[in-house]
């Protein structure tokens, strides 16, 4: 099957640390996959390299047969690779509605209009309401983002990403810092969104229930190296993975 995103020999050093060590991955279209690994393994850095947020030292990133290794981050977003962040990245002073509406303006390329009232765009308004409903934030659309609970702020971050109608959605620890019931809700939500929007979803996660619950493919990153990849059953019984990361907490 065809790879929508192909990482070849990707490499990155931060001073003396080798954070990304000659990584090769082919992400299949429509797949829900997880990246796991201990703290400081280089997971977030891997996302930063793909999205053009930091430059790689070596290697290539190919998206739908197009080399995007040196592309600017905003252009990579426009191509359809969109991310949500480990620490929710939203506009704190704006309402939930306005957070999503701004993303909608960008999506419909209305962001540069200078003389028209920002609310005048029907397509953006309708899209905003659709996303609000789809993701379950409609009831708190008038709240300021800063007033949201931690979990809802993460949901808003993901909602902003979805508003851009991505082809590939990168999620950095969607359940970080959430209570158990919030995690279960998030898990259901991600599965539903993945299917509904026909996304290629790649998520970094420490919560093993979630990883083994919804990922079709799991990849394990340790000290910048990809040490294993495969379906949940394969990873669960993988000797090196158990040793390096899963330890005794294996299911």
């Amino acid at each position: 099957m065809s790879a929508i995103l192909e990482i070849k020999n990707l490499d990155k050093h931060f001073g003396g640390i080798h954070v990304t060590n000659h990584v090769n991955i082919a992400f299949k279209k429509g797949e829900m996959s997880a990246i796991i690994g201990p703290n400081g393994a280089g997971k977030t850095t891997f996302f930063n390299l793909i999205t053009g947020f930091i430059p790689s030292d070596e290697g290539t990133v190919t998206y739908e047969d197009r080399d995007i290794t040196r592309a600017r981050p905003e252009n990579i977003v426009k191509l359809g690779i969109v991310r949500a962040f480990q620490v929710a990245s939203v506009f704190l002073e704006e309402s939930v509605y306005d957070n999503i509406y701004l993303a909608a303006l960008s999506h419909f390329r209305k962001n540069a209009k200078v003389f028209i009232n920002r609310m005048a765009f029907k397509d953006a308004r309708e899209h905003t309401e659709f996303i609000l409903n789809k993701i379950g934030l409609f009831d708190c659309r008038d709240l300021k983002a800063s007033e949201l609970s931690h979990g809802d702020m993460k949901v808003l971050d993901i909602a902003i990403a979805l508003t851009l109608q991505p082809k590939i959605l990168l999620l950095d620890e969607p359940t970080a810092g959430m209570a158990p019931d919030e995690r279960i809700r998030m898990m259901g939500l991600l599965k539903e969104l993945h299917e509904f929007f026909q996304l290629t979803t790649i998520f970094i996660e420490h919560d093993m229930d979630m990883v083994f619950g919804i990922a079709e493919i799991i990849r394990v990153l340790v000290q910048g190296q990809l040490i294993a990849e495969g379906p949940p059953d394969y990873i669960r019984n993988h000797e090196t993975v158990i040793e390096a990361y899963l330890g005794k907490e294996v299911l």
Binding site: N75, R83, V90, E93, A103, S106, H107, N111, A161
Partner: peptide, 11 residues
């Protein structure tokens, strides 16, 4: 408020 998020809105 958040220039990083603006970049990742594609702007």
């Amino acid at each position: 408020q958040n220039p990083q998020r603006i970049t990742f809105l594609g702007l």
